[in-house]
């Protein structure tokens, strides 16, 4: 699936939720189900500091695709991180660098991207883009 298809799928998934509780139950479950990051990657170098919660993000280039694994100490943040990973992990650096991320807004979670939430999600998105741009530049050099 392309990044756009992944985002549209998530938006469709979220349409079934009747109220905020169902929505957050789903996000919390996602957070609990997110595959654990290899402990060796849970380093200070991979730590994205938010004021409220921490996010660890690890990126690897496998067969021309960028694969992300991540973790957070807060389960809602972890669920949101899980959604971002569903959308962007396994895509090419070029596609990630050029992607427009609209699903968070569309599923009514924009407030989680507000800098005052400081939950690391906004910084994580920026970091993913930076990795993508970095790998893209590297591949152009080679």
């Amino acid at each position: 699936m392309t990044i756009k298809e992944q985002q549209d799928r998530i938006i469709e998934d979220f349409e079934v939720f009747g109220d905020w509780m169902e929505k957050y139950e789903y996000i919390i479950q996602l957070g609990k189900d997110l595959p654990l990051i290899d402990p060796k990657y849970k380093t200070d170098d991979n730590l994205i500091r938010g004021c409220q919660s921490k996010v660890w993000l690890h990126a690897e280039l496998i067969g021309g695709k960028l694969v992300f694994t991540a973790d957070s100490d807060a389960v809602i943040t972890k669920g949101l991180v899980g959604l971002v990973i569903q959308v962007l992990s396994g895509q090419t650096p070029k596609d990630i660098a050029e992607a427009e991320i609209y699903f968070i807004d569309a599923i009514g979670l924009t407030s989680h991207l507000s800098p005052t939430r400081s939950n690391g999600l906004l910084s994580m998105l920026k970091q993913i883009k930076l990795y993508a741009i970095g790998y893209q530049a590297k591949s152009l050099q080679n």
Binding site: I28, S53, V75, H112
Partner: peptide, 13 residues
């Protein structure tokens, strides 16, 4: 063992 930020988000809701 809940994280304060998770509780805060759900209280805001």
């Amino acid at each position: 063992d809940t994280h304060p930020s998770d509780v805060g988000v759900l209280l805001d809701q």
